[in-house]
């Protein structure tokens, strides 16, 4: 597992029903592409987050398949419709099988 993986999410705490809100996510991760070589000329093996999903109350907002061409500390910005109060669950899937999860509750108001 990559060290110091820390997900950060910016989502509003409140939204009115049916409102479209902007979500910003960032996760600290080296995203080693598998193209780089170390000082001895050995290829550094690929180690990336290969999938990111965002769900609200079990319904998908976005599902992103990621390749090594995504930058270090992957950042995503997208919009979601909030039909009701509930939990927004963000999940990142690492190459090594680790899963990083973050939840944000959004209330109606």
């Amino acid at each position: 597992m990559a060290d110091n993986v820390k997900p950060r999410v910016k989502a509003p705490r409140k939204a009115s029903a049916g409102e479209t809100v902007t979500i910003k996510t960032l996760i600290s991760h080296p995203m080693e592409s598998g193209q780089r070589k170390d000082a001895d000329g050995n290829t550094i093996p690929r180690s990336i987050i290969n999938r990111f999903t965002c769900e609200f109350n079990g319904e998908t907002v976005v599902d992103v398949t990621m390749e090594p061409a995504i930058s270090t500390n992957p950042y995503f910005e997208f919009e979601a419709v909030i039909p009701d109060a509930g939990d927004m669950v963000f999940t990142w899937y690492d190459d090594d099988g680790s899963v990083y999860e973050e939840t944000k509750s959004i209330a109606l108001g």
Binding site: E59, V61, V64, A69, I70, E77, F78, E79, A80
Partner: peptide, 16 residues
Amino acid sequence: AEFKFGPLAGSHSAST
């Protein structure tokens, strides 16, 4: 990358 948008996507846009 491949972005797949679900039923709750507010707009079919994304940035990275």
